[in-house]
Design a protein around this nucleic acid. Structure first.
Lengths: 318, 318
DNA sequence: GTGAAAGCGCTAACAT
DNA sequence: ATGTTAGCGCTTTCAC
């Protein structure tokens, strides 16, 4: 029918009929059925975005980056949440792929075999984000968390700290935190230093957990002169506690977190941290999808961004 | 084909053929095409969720509530973000409805005429969330922000504060903040009190903005004995600043925010606030959708939850 | 218990 | 510039 042509601004349609169709559509409150359209055209302008969590403060920013670039196109992001659970990731991925999206943006490089197989077989651009330590199915945009851990360790050693404690999420579920930890310990080892104490948590109010863990650790290991946190939220909690207790930060004890979450700017003192380039990761990933879909040559393989250390007020100058 | 029956566990299929089909599907890496399925069956297990923002700290919690209940069903939430822009809301809504979802959960009661028309014409359950001050297209689950504002005003007056300053987002875009403000001023007026100073902001790091605005306001109006913030984030920023300046909170100056964001639990002192029931709103909305879809009788019209004041450390006892 | 056939509401290609 | 037709990959219904 001509109607289809009008509604998609395609082909030559006389302005007269065009008007008539538009008018009729409005009157009937017509909303086209994309399902039928997609089935017929074999094109779906959806980009599946699969992330571990929404309440994390890190993924909303990635989403912002993605939305910004997709906004000016036909493409629409559709998000799925995995809660850091591989089985759930598999399920969500399956569900999303069954809608035949035009591309997939998925967090991390670690997936179940089944998930990897699905991604590889989907025949669409697949961008794995956040991390570049590993082998992507297709392309990856992110930072090297191992390197991020190393860099922070080097900065800490350079500043003269030697007795280091670590606090973070229970390793295992969060591969990126694990890799940072590995890079961190590795670089410390090169400097002849070992982590003296560590503590892990699973959930709860991050700020509060940071306080609790820090209090417990300082009670247990008062000799520590540096506290490294797997994320800024628990780090900020720890910092608040340390300040209240009257510790000399960063003189006697240095502290650092990870992510550079904007949310915390405005706290009495600023935790040393490392920017994880979240928004740019989202932007770049969406751009690659877009380029691929337009048949342009987009960087395949890894795109590694470089996180920068922000010493804040809790890392003394070397 | 029998295949279809197997993959959906429907109808009677002999275990033998069933096995064969399953095996073949696995081998081929077969992912069913939901587009075709949806078109044929006229059923789409998607629930459109339309919210103003993701980075807000309030909507992720609503999403959690929704996901929790939808998780155990066939239904999948699909989110769209409007950035508080009516035109964008219209566009996102149109886009989502054209996928013929099984239901819509949309924030707020204020929509463009076109949006309301689309919602009304969609012929699916429509739950407007967060707010109950107005007329829903179909059902609404939320709190009365006008009442929330009033209650807070009453509590403040009851505690003996009289010289009140207000800080919040620029009114207009955020209808719920506006309604709280209206309820607040209204209840103050009943007590013979008027807001003495106010300040609005548009964007930026909320904690930081709270600091800046508070500093500016206290410099301008040192006589104030209470500061009411439109949200906890700026309130927390303000509270940190007040503490640093050595103000006697809540003795000389009381303070309160809104939302009861979990994220802030762990700060040195706790801002008085009001729980906005976010997760429960999400849960209830999803439950209503579910019930409707199952043909059960679900509460149509408004479901008004009751937010509770949490006095924290910044509201002295009456 | 299994197969065959008719559509779902569009788009694409081909008439006219 | 407009109409016609054949699918897209499933589900549904009805036969067997």
């Amino acid at each position: 029918m001509t109607v289809s042509r009008v509604l998609r601004n395609r082909g030559d349609v006389s302005p007269t009929t065009r008007q008539k169709v538009l008018e009729a559509a409005r009157q009937l409150g017509y909303v086209p059925n994309k399902i039928a359209g997609a089935l017929a055209s074999q094109r779906v302008n959806l980009v599946a975005v699969i992330i571990p969590s929404m309440s994390n403060m890190v993924f909303p920013e990635v989403m912002t980056g993605i939305s910004r670039v997709l906004e000016e196109t036909e493409l629409q992001p559709v998000v799925g949440v995995t809660d850091y659970l591989p089985e759930k990731e598999e399920k969500v991925l399956y569900e999303m792929l069954s809608w035949r999206p035009s591309g997939v943006i998925i967090a991390g490089l670690e997936h179940s075999d089944a998930s990897r197989a699905m991604l590889a077989a989907a025949g669409i651009p697949v961008i794995e984000i956040m991390d570049t330590d590993g082998t992507p199915v297709d392309s990856a945009v992110g930072i090297s968390h191992r390197r991020a851990g190393r860099e922070m360790a080097k900065a800490i050693l350079a500043a003269g700290y030697r007795r280091i404690g670590y606090m973070g999420t229970r390793l295992g579920l969060d591969h990126r935190a694990r890799k940072r930890f590995e890079g961190f310990t590795e670089a410390l080892a090169k400097g002849g230093v070992e982590i003296e104490d560590q503590e892990f948590y699973t959930n709860g109010s991050a700020l509060g957990k940071g306080r609790e863990m820090t209090a417990a650790m300082m009670a247990r290991s008062p000799e520590l002169d540096f506290l490294y946190y797997s994320n800024d939220m628990i780090g900020a909690g720890g910092l608040l506690w340390m300040r209240e207790q009257g510790y000399d930060v960063p003189g006697a004890v240095g502290m650092a977190g990870f992510n550079d979450v904007q949310l915390l700017h405005g706290l009495p003192s600023k935790l040393a941290t490392m920017d994880s380039c979240r928004q740019e990761i989202g932007r770049r990933a969406a751009e690659i999808i877009l380029a691929r879909l337009n048949g342009e040559d987009a960087p395949s393989g890894k795109v590694e961004l470089t996180p920068v250390i922000n010493p804040g007020d809790t890392l003394r100058a070397p």
